[in-house]
Write a protein that binds this DNA or RNA. Structure first.
Lengths: 333, 333
DNA sequence: AACAGAGGATCCCGGTGCGCT
DNA sequence: AAGCGCACCGGGATCCTCTGT
């Protein structure tokens, strides 16, 4: 910067002004400085800026399961939105999510002096809240259950699972099973609760619930068990699309077919969902919107404005894995 | 830090030394300082550190298609390896990869004063090389084709495609098609070349080649076309697993089955591959190894050691989507 | 004489590296 | 040998001066 100042025949403060508040510098001088900047290929050093100004324009992102489609899309959207606002992302992906690992991550991020933190994880919010409670930077959680001390953005899981279940009920299914996610994941619990509630609301008896771990493998195991033990089930809500892939496999192995023998609804709408056989009816979550919204909240918080938690509504995408039960009748009047 | 120094009754420089080179401080003083650090919950500020020391211990990561399994896994591995070496990650994901977007990303990263850059993208290396050529920090590319100015790590694409093709030849297939990735992606080109070469090496005539864009959708389109126009084909090498999902869908729609009517080999080994119907024979790429290796190279470069480009061998994972052609004979003696 | 705008002088951010006591 | 003082990293913020009206 000193070089630029020298080349332009001004002081370094003037250069700083040109870069930060151009209108306070006369057009003439401004041009000279800008030329010098261009000529010397000068690029201002954010480290020094951060030290002097007290903020890094860096958002720390703690994320779980980054290799999956949902979190990956969300992180891309976060980065993109942040970039547009002049912020960069410091990523701290976790392989295991626990109070310890999260607080270690927050610690690393804070020592990097991030201006805010976004936590992308569906894996429980109690820990995050606890770890984030007395931080002096804004923390926004994505996909964590709402509530607690930190602001958060999420997809309305109950609405989604309700949508899925109602779709099946309206097709005429009366015995609906659920392949749930791990019980200790709030999202899994909410989906599960909403499935049960919707079934109850329609006066049906609760169907069997099996628990998976979000993986195709676990979906396969759960569905095999389901098909073998609960022959009266005509439809199943699977808590995510990966498990639905495993469920499909189980169907094939046992000689059953969707939707003829059993209807299947997934959750997420991964890009492959439309190309499975049969194309999977599922609940679409807008992962990108989640990321953008989180950044919006962060910027609000940084600006001292209130930043209320928000729920984004999911959408039912009907494809070919659901149909009326064989010999059943539609409940739709 | 001044507070800590005061609390411990030493100067702030001594505190600095306790944190950076503990052995140069007497055990006694060291204890006092460490206590003060703990009591005050002191956490050193990397921004100031960076400014004074000249390095940020930050690795910039430019990545393409982060929402997919491969890049996602790689980034996680990069971050993990970096973390272990005391480095953090600044992420700059791209939605479109071009000379402009990449150099803008490098620019942002450099102005953040990253110590090194890792570029994760299979989308051509010429641009990256050009943009990275006269950077003063080490640049390592992952998945970019080897060669050029930047060091790189990648999976041996030719070996992988060769493995896939040879597997089919050895099963007795004589008419092998290829659903390739976009021609302007070096990896797609290499896979395509290796398929052709392997076919030629075995004295077979080249099969039809169709081009997709890595998506399930494009795999679906390509496979439909293939099945309709080239009825003599008994096996197909699909350039990635997503497209294979689409290809499966086309098979189902047209009433064909794998491997009975046609054998299918994918590429990547995404987690769902084992749960498709039939379970997909594919080429496994070790994405995590890629990430770890890239960080190793970066650290070498930073230490002033040479950092030679490296290729990681892929593996053939045989599952149920490949078999001898109907009525054909195995070429295996 | 008072005032507004342009640009300069200084100190400061929170550490590190070195020479010196 | 242990510990201290000083300069310095590269910019920002505040206050101040100078010019012209």
């Amino acid at each position: 910067m000193a070089d630029v100042a020298h080349a332009a025949g001004v002081s370094h403060q003037t250069v700083s002004r040109v870069l930060n508040a151009p209108q306070t510098v006369s057009p003439d001088t401004r041009q000279r400085v800008l030329r010098a900047v261009a000529d010397l290929g000068y690029r201002r050093n954010s480290v020094a800026r951060a030290l002097a100004s007290g903020h890094t324009r860096l958002i720390g992102v703690v994320v779980d399961e980054l290799a999956f489609h949902g979190p990956g899309s969300t992180v891309v959207a976060v980065a993109e939105a942040a970039r547009q606002a002049g912020y960069a992302i410091s990523l701290d992906p976790q392989v295991t999510m626990s109070t310890d690992t999260v607080s270690a991550a927050l610690d690393r991020l804070l020592s990097r002096a991030v201006d805010a933190v976004i936590v992308v994880s569906a894996h429980g919010w109690a820990d995050i809240d606890a770890a984030a409670a007395h931080l002096d930077v804004p923390v926004v959680s994505i996909d964590g259950a709402l509530g607690g001390a930190t602001a958060s953005v999420g997809v309305d899981q109950r609405a989604g699972a309700g949508l899925a279940t109602r779709h099946l009920v309206e097709l005429g299914h009366r015995r609906i099973a659920h392949v749930a996610g791990p019980a200790d994941w709030p999202q899994a619990a909410e989906r599960r609760a909403a499935v049960a509630q919707t079934i109850a609301e329609h006066g049906l008896t609760p169907g069997p619930v099996l628990e998976g771990d979000w993986s195709a493998r676990s979906g396969h195991v759960a569905m095999r068990r389901l098909l073998q033990r609960h022959r009266d089930v005509t439809a199943v809500v699977v808590a995510n699309d990966q498990m639905a892939v495993g469920a499909y496999r189980a169907l094939t192995e046992l000689g059953r077919r969707a939707p003829d023998d059993i209807s299947v609804v997934g959750f997420d709408d991964i890009p492959e969902a439309a190309y499975l056989s049969p194309p999977l009816t599922t609940i679409r979550q807008d992962f990108s919107a989640l990321g953008r919204e989180a950044v919006r909240l962060v910027l609000s918080a940084l600006a001292g404005e209130p930043c209320p938690s928000r729920l984004i509504p999911p959408k039912l995408v009907v494809r070919a894995s659901t149909a009326r039960p064989r010999g059943g009748q539609s409940a739709t009047r």
